[in-house]
Design a protein around this nucleic acid. Structure first.
Lengths: 235, 235
DNA sequence: CCCCACGTAAACAAGCCGTAAACACAGTGG
DNA sequence: CCACTGTGTTTACGGCTTGTTTACGTGGGG
């Protein structure tokens, strides 16, 4: 096997945490725990877990909100547990970015088998709350952007756009994709916004906005935030 | 936008295939079908599907055997359907390499949501988004083309054309096919465009555009991008 | 010898992109 | 209650890349 896999279990009931922990550690997983949504969101960015097991019923907040917040910066696999068996609940969770959904009560064997099936699909890195190219660093957990040591203040839309680019670093982000993600559906025609906000972004993060080194425009298609290897190759 | 996802549905009951097909095609998936284990194993290698939906109960053989045989050469995601709800059955299927397991009867909405959750994970696994012949490399995930180490800048139409050729490498791409794919329907008469853009492509990727080594013209039919073995044989 | 399909070259037109500036709007603090 | 500040939207324009149009050259087969 590769290195040991780490799993973050989020549940407010101690006996369920215990049940999950024993099942998972027998399989050789390292288990870390959080007993509330707030704690989960606090430890997730630094925990470097490979998978999150999330109970929908938490003491302090709705599990779906935790999932939503997590998905703002991480595509870490998420395994949902719930007592609710309605199909609509499952569909909602899956559409929000969950990878599997089990209804309590369930058997430990199936749970572990499903966790293994998910883990198997994750090559190495999926969490990565930080992204870096050259002098540019994006801390997605803290919603902060740095150029070298100094922070760059971005407006909400500017940040959303840059984050989307970072999540697809190296690949081309289509006009459609960005308009859909940042402005929502129904703005497919407003490709014009992109030009204006790309200009603003470049003015803030590029040293010479007329010769961009980070945000490359792919004419007729979209924009590309260079991945580290591409950035190095362009030097 | 990414390309359309293709799903292979394996089930011996026509009404279930129909049920799945309607649910999936509404979501924009392309569905291909197999009604037996043998047929599934026969078409799978060439079908270039992104996901397999496999019923455990087939006319000719056990679904688990199909899964086992498939896993000998492919790590394509597999979604298991079954009437059996025993935990041991689920665990066995998951351990054999299945990615999800649903018990019949089930709702179409949850099924589609789970399929989407699986598909979503694909680009990270992405079997083989790169194509290479000789010094030419096409990185389809990043939408980049290289000649040796240095990148070749292509315009949208140029890239679309080259990508189409690469997807059919070794085989002949017809005039009609290319005009349909790149220029859309209604340009069947404009075979002239092809000559102009092939020239542009050759100028960018061939060392001597008058003696092409990659893009061969098949007189009266179309063009062909050599597959690696053909390229080696021509040296 | 001529015809057909393909290759080549240049000029043209449209679409796309970058840039700037004015405007509307909300939140803040005096 | 009002100026001030930052943000997002709207409008306008010039320049460059791209795709299209047009024209001519080439080479093999009937």
């Amino acid at each position: 096997m590769t290195r040991q896999r780490r799993i973050l279990v989020v549940d407010d009931e101690p006996q369920i945490r215990r049940f999950l922990r024993t099942g998972l550690s027998v399989q050789g997983f390292e288990v870390i725990e959080a007993e509330s949504g707030a704690e989960a969101l606090r430890v997730a960015p630094t925990a470097r877990a490979d998978l999150v097991v999330l109970d929908l019923q938490l003491g302090d907040m709705d599990g779906l909100d935790v999932l939503k917040r997590l998905r703002e910066w991480s595509w870490l696999p998420v395994f949902i547990l719930s007592v609710r068996d309605r199909e609509a609940d499952k569909v909602k969770a899956l559409e929000l970015g969950a990878d599997d959904y089990m209804t309590k009560p369930f058997g430990a064997a199936e749970f572990v088998a499903r966790v293994n099936a998910l883990i198997r699909r994750i090559p190495e890195i999926a969490a990565q709350p930080k992204f870096s190219v050259g002098d540019l660093t994006i801390d997605m957990a803290r919603r902060q952007v740095f150029l070298g040591e100094s922070e760059v203040k971005l407006s909400p839309k500017e940040y959303q756009l840059l984050q989307f680019l970072a999540r697809h670093a190296g690949k081309v982000a289509t006009h459609q994709q960005m308009l859909n993600e940042v402005w929502g559906p129904g703005h497919a025609e407003d490709a014009h916004y992109l030009r204006i906000f790309m200009r603003k972004l470049r003015n803030k993060i590029e040293t010479d906005a007329t010769r961009p080194r980070y945000i490359i425009t792919e004419l007729g298609v979209g924009y590309r935030l260079l991945a580290p290897d591409q950035y190095d190759a362009a030097s």
